[in-house]
Design a protein around this nucleic acid. Sequence first.
DNA 1: GCCAACGTTGGC
DNA 2: GCCAACGTTGGC
Length: 150
Amino acid sequence: MIWLFKTEPDTFSIDDLQKKKTEAWNGVRNYQARNFLRDNTKIGDTVLFYHSSCKIPGVAGLAKISSSPYPDTTALDPKSEYYDPKATLENPIWVMVDVDFVEKFNEIITLESLKKVESLKDFTLLKRGNRLSIFPVNETELKIILKLKR
DNA sequence: GCCAACGTTGGC
DNA sequence: GCCAACGTTGGC
């Protein structure tokens, strides 16, 4: 499948991923997003890397999923900002996947520009009140978005 | 910093 | 199982 992963660039940006080459995508604490990770991600899946809560929100580049889902151990660490007291070794509740750097776009494909595309009217990202940090993208949407690359 | 929209929690 | 209160997300 194809995915969109949101991240706040102040916390982890496409530049950080480019430097590190790969990153464990921890800290997902929403059940719907967790279920996508756990049940539907496959190694090799394309990920649209989206910068949120920042000056210029938009798709900053591409990544790919490079591991199967595995327990997100930050949920077990009381010192972690992602600590979840309900998580245990036996039932870690939350999962993560590894993500590899693929490409940083020359220019960010801004949320503003995506909104102007008529054929993206039903794109999940643009739906009213969308707050999911991980969701699937279809082939058509991916093609349309990649056409906006400069 | 504001606030709409949504998810989660907890009392009942 | 309902739903009010609360917390979070994320664009502006």
